[in-house]
């Protein structure tokens, strides 16, 4: 009897959760749709786009530099030693570092950092605006918040993240080079020749991922921000959710996106 009740409670709880989740998915899709609608149907607020580009770029690039620099170094170190074990000399270090960074680690690690910094900032800012009625105030002053707040952020994120990834790729390859050269004595021309033979598709592979991750991160962060309820506590919750959900989606999405891109022979 008692367990029956618990069970039905449990099932209805799951039911409610599923309903709520599909509702949220619907709302997220609507947010993206409306953002694209406003992007094409209203003049762009250049100032806001510019400010966002600056903010997102400046906010993230020191951390991504550091992350990718060390990632490149550690990749070179690991692969160098592994290859020495197998071939007695450090072959293919450039090839390995270049491909790993450009196809996977560059886009994914940069996106994770981006989610942490930009996602949190966007969710917190929009969330604060929501709970202090600034979003309502926008409406009453004849400005659509999606147009004024979401569009510039979407645009900036989808432009800036690929740029950051290109930049990170360079830094990562540079980090790898330092180790390859100074630790394993690989001559620069050997290392960089292996980088140059990398095909453009491989870099494009990484950049397509970056654009998609940018879209994911900014969608989640804007959604979390614009649906914030409940004062300072609510802002904190939105910010945390924005970061955690974006990071998870980036990592999970990376697998499926890679599978898709490989199926289409990109990279």
């Amino acid at each position: 009897m008692n367990t029956d009740l618990n069970q039905s409670n449990f099932i209805s709880l799951i039911g409610r959760k599923i309903l709520r989740s599909s509702e949220i998915c619907g709302e997220v899709v609507i947010l993206v749709k409306r953002t694209f609608y406003w992007f094409f149907h209203a003049p762009l607020n250049r100032r806001n786009v510019f400010l966002q580009l600056l903010e997102m770029g400046a906010r993230t690039f020191p951390v991504t530099s550091l992350t990718l620099f060390f990632t490149g170094m550690v990749l070179a170190l690991q692969s160098g030693y592994s290859f020495i074990k197998v071939f007695n000399e450090p072959l293919y270090v450039g090839r390995l570092v270049g491909a790993s960074i450009c196809k996977e680690l560059g886009p994914v690690l940069t996106s994770l950092v981006f989610a942490g910094r930009v996602g949190a900032a966007v969710a917190a800012e929009l969330g604060t605006m929501k709970v202090t009625e600034q979003i309502d105030a926008l409406y009453t002053l004849g400005t659509n918040p999606i147009k004024y707040l979401a569009v510039p952020r979407f645009l900036a994120a989808m432009l800036m993240l690929p740029l950051l990834v290109i930049y990170s790729d360079f830094i990562g390859i540079l980090g790898g080079f330092l180790i390859a050269h100074f630790r394993f004595g690989i001559p620069p021309n050997v290392y960089f020749d292996e980088i140059y033979i990398m095909q453009i598709r491989e870099v494009v592979h990484g950049l397509i991922k970056a654009v998609v991750f940018g879209l994911i991160i900014i969608t989640i962060s804007c959604y979390e921000g614009l649906t914030t309820e409940g004062g300072a506590e609510g802002v904190g919750q939105s910010t945390t959710s924005a970061v955690v959900i974006s990071m998870v989606l980036v990592l999970v999405g990376d697998y499926f996106l890679t599978a898709l891109l490989v199926a289409f022979r990109i990279g």
């Binding site: 605006m129 202090t132 009625e133 600034q134 309502d136 105030a137 409406y139 009453t140 004849g142």
Partner: peptide, 14 residues
């Protein structure tokens, strides 16, 4: 909404 001015209880300045 363009015809209406709204003064918010907590000001809601940007």
């Amino acid at each position: 909404q363009k015809m209406i001015g709204y003064v918010f209880q907590e000001a809601a300045l940007f």
